[in-house]
C-alpha cells in the first residue's frame, strides 16, 4: 500500500458518490412528465373536487400534503400554497395528511377524474 496512491479523489468512497448521484437524479426528476401516460377526464374549475385554503397553509407547520401527494398537486411557491386538482388520482392522501383544516375533499362528479386503463 503506497502513500502516493492515497490522493484526495481516491478517499471519496464510491458508495457515497453513487448515493449522492442517485439522490440528485431523483430530485431533478419531473413527476409531471411521468404522469403524462395516465388518462383523465377533467371537470371544469368550478367543479374542482378538492379545494385548498392557502391562508391556512401559510400557518401550517408541516406541509405533509406535499410529501404525500403522488402527483405533485401541491406546491409551496413564493410563500404561497399553490394547488391544482387536474392531475389528482383521487387517492385521498392529502385529506388524510392535512390536519389543519385546509383541504376539503370529495370524489369527482361521476365519469370525471382519473381513468385507469390498466389499474
Amino acid at each position: 500500500m503506497s502513500v502516493a496512491s492515497e490522493t484526495p479523489e481516491k478517499r471519496i468512497t464510491p458508495e457515497r458518490s453513487v448515493k449522492e448521484k442517485v439522490k440528485m437524479m431523483i430530485d431533478g426528476m419531473d413527476i409531471k412528465n411521468k404522469i403524462g401516460v395516465t388518462q383523465w377526464e377533467t371537470d371544469a374549475h368550478e367543479n374542482a373536487h378538492i379545494t385548498v385554503d392557502p391562508d391556512i397553509c401559510n400557518q401550517c407547520p408541516h406541509h405533509l400534503c406535499i410529501a404525500g401527494c403522488p402527483t405533485q398537486c401541491f406546491k409551496f411557491y413564493e410563500g404561497k400554497m399553490v394547488f391544482q386538482y387536474e392531475d389528482c388520482v383521487e387517492c385521498g392522501t392529502c385529506d388524510i395528511m392535512c390536519d389543519q383544516g385546509s383541504v376539503s375533499w370529495t370524489n369527482p362528479r361521476g365519469t370525471y377524474g382519473v381513468k385507469y386503463s390498466q389499474g
Partner: peptide
Amino acid sequence: KEASENLQSYK
C-alpha cells in the same frame, strides 16, 4: 416543512 419539500411519495 423542509422535509416535505425534500422527499415526496412520488420520489
